[in-house]
Write a protein that binds this DNA or RNA. Structure first.
Lengths: 221, 221
DNA sequence: CGCACTTTTCGTACGCGTACTGAAAGTACA
DNA sequence: TGTACTTTCAGTACGCGTACGAAAAGTGCG
């Protein structure tokens, strides 16, 4: 009787030993000493397996004391989850698996905190979910793009076909922007997530609850 | 002598005939009447192949007349590209391929227009790329999350393990938000991209060029 | 107990992407 | 012409995820 917990434990063991790229259903089954297809009775998919692993991880994100101001609390929460995902080397790979995206909502705490923060700020519950969803859009995209940028090779030489980002830019038409690719790479090296996140949240709250969000920040529902 | 163009043409033919899920290197080689591995001389990867296909598509997005106001132009451009990607049934699949994310920058026109718009609005070139990048984050995330939501099954019955979004929510702790999953699904059915995009752009521009962005919209560099 | 039914296990097989190897064809120069 | 080198092609093989179906083990009931 192989349990889900044992499977996850074995998976973590395999990953720690050989790296996550080598994690495969077949190897995992071998590690557990069971037949390959037996695994499919405890786990629907390989995707499902990864989902379980990352959900477990996301639920372990520490929950420090958060700022009292609702808006700051929202931002701090999202930033915390973002940082956890960005630090998790498999996150981007798993996020890109179709069917997973959007499910990190199961990391209950993040949903709770962000939605509650938006309500505290004066949003209706519907608007609060709306806010959460947009934050989630932005977070997913940022992590994926960041992960991609991190995997880009060193950009030395190597012509034509496999050229990196923005190689297709028609430089003659945009002479003032020839450095755009470099700027992109510079940004890749920086942690710009918090700024964009704050811009997004500010913009959303201004749309949804203009009167409240205009005031300095003394209100605190 | 099999050329890149012939390969892409054959790929499109295959996709039109059998659907894109059935596109494989082996089948494509067969369609072309060449050996499987020969394909790898014209295309680095399967990923590379998909990249070529979608870049081709993205470059065909029509370029209508855009609003004169820089901010509106930025938003209209991003929305146009977003809609094109959202309408392209393979887009989400391809976007999730690690290594592609971030490369749609090769759809030159979008980059040009957004960056130029931000500069028109008063940003420095560096800030303009910054703006573009954040828009791109948001767009990628939105498309992926949307694509996932679209693939979700009908939500009828089916307990415990494979339950859909937010099933993990601890409802006893958040009794006022039991409907959060439904709200999420409601949002999935709506096109909320433009609102979030506008919120993001407004927020970013307010951060970067506060004095300009505060004024109604008469300036037009 | 026997018997029916469900759950759990696993062997086999398919198609996949692609690493590796080496043959074939094209090209340049003596 | 022959010879050396480069480009293009293909066969074979590996490990992968997983569909399918058969076997085995567990369970309830007469």
């Amino acid at each position: 009787m192989t349990s889900r917990a044992q499977i996850l434990e074995a998976a973590r063991r395999l990953i720690d030993r050989d790296g996550w790229e080598k994690l495969s259903i077949r190897r995992l089954a071998a590690e557990l000493g069971i037949g390959t297809m037996t695994l499919y009775h405890h786990v629907r998919d390989k995707e499902d397996l990864l989902l379980l692993l990352i959900t477990e991880y996301a639920d372990q994100v520490p929950r420090p004391d958060l700022p009292g101001d609702p808006r700051d609390r929202i931002i701090a929460t999202a930033a915390l989850v973002h940082d956890a995902l960005a630090a998790w080397p498999w996150a981007a790979e798993v996020l890109t698996v179709d069917g997973f995206v959007g499910r990190l909502g199961e990391s209950v705490w993040m949903v709770e905190t962000i939605v509650a923060g938006a309500i505290d700020h004066g949003c209706t519950p519907e608007q609060a979910v709306h806010v959460f969803r947009h934050i989630w859009y932005y977070t997913v995209g940022e992590i994926l793009v960041r992960a991609h940028s991190a995997h880009q090779p060193a950009e030395d030489g190597r012509p034509a076909d496999q050229a990196p980002l923005f190689s297709g830019l028609d430089r003659s038409r945009m002479p003032s922007l020839v450095a755009i690719g470099d700027q992109w790479r510079t940004l890749s090296a920086q942690d710009t997530y918090p700024q964009g996140l704050r811009a997004l949240v500010d913009g959303l709250l201004a749309q949804l609850a203009p009167e409240t969000s205009r005031k300095p920040r003394s209100i605190r529902s």
